[in-house]
């Protein structure tokens, strides 16, 4: 992998982290002052998707780009299915929907990047996996 590709991914990760940090702090603030917070209900089948990150990263490690892409596409599909569960008028669910949708965009971008650049897009891909664990943690545990 070239230095250029690595730097670009590191910066992309920095920007995405900032994006998620902004959403998260908005959520922390909103939860603290609204007085109407309720944890968003997550269907039980979400739990196994946490395995996505180690799976996809492992596949990439084996240089099996196509299967890793398939795993990513499956995640995006699951996320889209998940979005139907949330009511936007309920604030906790609205945040959940927004973060999942934004993550789905990242995952889709990651899939496309794998298709275009192959294994050199791996760093971003690992980040997408970690980010998903973060999102699940945020809504499954913290919220």
């Amino acid at each position: 992998m070239t230095n250029v590709a690595r730097s670009a991914q590191v910066l992309l990760i920095a920007a995405s982290s900032m994006l998620f940090a902004a959403f998260t702090s908005a959520m922390v603030v909103r939860r603290g002052i609204g007085g109407d917070w309720a944890a968003p209900p997550l269907p039980a089948w979400v739990l196994p998707t946490i395995l996505f990150a180690p799976l996809a990263s492992w596949l990439l490690h084996q240089r099996r780009v196509k299967p890793a892409m398939a795993a990513g596409a499956a995640l995006v599909a699951a996320q889209i299915a998940l979005l139907a569960h949330f009511r936007m008028a309920v604030i906790g669910e609205a945040f959940c929907a927004v973060l999942i949708a934004v993550h789905a965009l990242h995952a889709a971008a990651g899939v496309l990047a794998l298709g275009r650049f192959g294994a050199s897009a791996a760093i971003f891909w690992h980040f997408v996996g970690l980010l998903w664990i973060y999102v699940l943690f945020l809504f499954g545990v913290w919220a």
């Binding site: 920007a15 995405s16 900032m18 994006l19 902004a22 959403f23 908005a26 936007m88 008028a89 604030i91 609205a94 927004v98 934004v102």
Partner: peptide, 18 residues
């Protein structure tokens, strides 16, 4: 990267009833 979330949430308040 912080203005973008602000805009997204504002748009949702307008269009999605959040």
């Amino acid at each position: 990267a912080v203005l973008l979330p602000g805009g997204v949430l504002l748009l949702l308040d307008r269009l999605a009833g959040t």
